[in-house]
Design a protein around this nucleic acid. Structure first.
Lengths: 126, 126, 126, 126
DNA sequence: GTGGTCTAGACCACG
DNA sequence: GTGGTCTAGACCACC
C-alpha cells in the first residue's frame, strides 16, 4: 500500500489522500494512463468511508490530474501542464520557512533539506 | 500596523495572525521581550472578533513563541531554541513541492524561489 | 465509420453513440429507412461492449428515431415529426448560456456560435 | 425561494443547484459580494440533505464563482472572467440543436428561441 | 464489477 | 451561528 490515512492528522483524510496521490504522480510512480485503485478498494484498504475517497478522487479530477470514468475506474490523466499560482506557493512557503528559521536553521540547512525532499520525490522509478 | 487580516484569504483569520506574528518573530522585527499588542487592540485594528485574536495568541503560546501574562499582555518569549520537528517540516513541504514539480518547475527554479522567500523573510531588521 | 467512441470524453459512451447517430439523422446523412450497423458490428468497430451499443439503440428507439426489428437489425424511422418539448429544450439551453454569459460573451457572439454549429450540422448532404 | 430541486430530474440535485445558482449569478440577480443562503438553510428549504448542498457550493467554489468562508457563509466572488472552453460549449450544443432540427424547427426558430432565453437570463434586475 | 448520488446523523473548526 | 468532515448504508448508472 502506497497510501495511508491518519485520522488524527490535522489534515482531513480526503486531503491526505489527495496529497499522497499527487505526490505519487509528481514522482512518476503513477504514470499517465495508470489506473488508480477503485474507490471501494482504497476505502477498504484505508479503513475509511467510500465517500471520503470519492471526494478525494473528485478533487483530483477537478485539478485535472486524473480522469474518472463511470463504471471503469479512475486513471492518471495524460500529462499536461499543471497551472502554477506562484503567489500562492510563496504564501504557503512562508510559514514553513519561518518555523525553520525559528528553529535556528541556517539558509544552507533549509535549502539542503529542500533539496533532499525534491530528490526523495523525484527519486528513481524506472 | 504590521499585521493584516484578509477575510477572503483561504486561510482562517486566526491562522493568518499566527503566521504573520511568527514571521515577524523569525525576521527579528519582534525581538524577545517585545510586547505584542493587546488582544483588544489588535482585534480592533484588524476589525475581527476578540476571540479570534485570543485564539491566535494562545496558539503562539502553545508553540512557545510568546508568553501570556494574565492581565499584563503578551510578550515574545526570551530567545530559546524552538523545537524542530524535521519530519513535520518535510511533511509540510511535500505537497508544495509536488505541485511545483507537476507545474513543470525545475529543481533550480524551486530552490531559487525558496531562496527568494528566505531572503524576504530575513530581510533587514536592524 | 462515421461514429467514434472516446473513452476519455466526459459523456458516457452510450450517450456519445446516441448523440452522434441523432446528429447524423438530423443532418440527413442517415435517411429514413436506412439501416443502422448491427449492434455486433458497431460494437466491434468502436471497440466497446455489446451492451453499450444495444443500450444506445434502445434509447434511440425510445425517442422514435429508429425502429428495431428483432433479428433484422435497426433502421431509421420513416420520417415523422419528432415531438418537441420546448420547455425541456430551454432547460437544456440555460446552463450553457449562463456559462457563456459568465465568460463575457455578448449575445452576438453566442448567436454567432450557435449559427455556426447549426450550419455544421445541416452541412451538405446532397 | 429562487431555487428548486427536483429529485426526479435526470440531473443530480447538487448539479441542479449549481446550475441555478450559476444562472442567478449570470443574470446579475446574485451580485459579487452577495451572500448565498447558508448550507443548512438551503438544504432545509429544498428538503434535501445538508451534504448535497455542500457539494454544490464546493463545486461553485471550484469554478471560482463563490467564496466559502468557514464560519461565515458563502458569497459570490468578486467578478472575474470565467474561463471559456469553446470546444466544450460546441459539443454541448450539438445534441440540443440536433433535437430541435429533428423536431422540424427552422434555423430562424432555433435562433429565436435562443435569443428569448438569453433575454430571459439577462433580464432586468436593477 | 466500476463510480455517482443521496440520506441521516454525528462531531469538529471558525468567528 | 456558520461551514467541514466523516460515517454507514442505500440505490442508481455505466460497462
Amino acid at each position: 500500500m502506497l497510501i495511508s490515512a491518519d485520522p488524527s492528522d490535522d489534515q482531513p483524510i480526503y486531503r491526505q489522500i489527495v496529497d499522497q496521490l499527487r505526490q505519487l504522480i509528481a514522482a512518476g510512480i503513477l504514470q499517465p494512463g495508470d489506473p488508480l485503485p477503485s474507490v471501494r478498494q482504497l476505502a477498504a484498504d484505508l479503513g475509511v468511508n467510500l465517500n471520503t475517497v470519492a471526494i478525494a478522487y473528485r478533487e483530483l479530477a477537478g485539478e485535472g490530474l486524473v480522469e474518472i470514468k463511470h463504471g471503469r475506474g479512475a486513471r492518471v490523466t495524460a500529462a499536461r501542464e499543471h497551472r502554477f499560482d506562484e503567489e500562492r506557493m510563496r504564501k504557503l512557503l512562508v510559514p514553513i520557512l519561518s518555523k525553520m528559521i525559528l528553529a535556528g536553521k541556517s539558509d544552507g540547512e533549509i535549502v539542503g533539506l529542500l533539496r533532499e525532499e525534491l530528490h526523495n520525490i523525484r527519486g528513481d522509478k524506472t
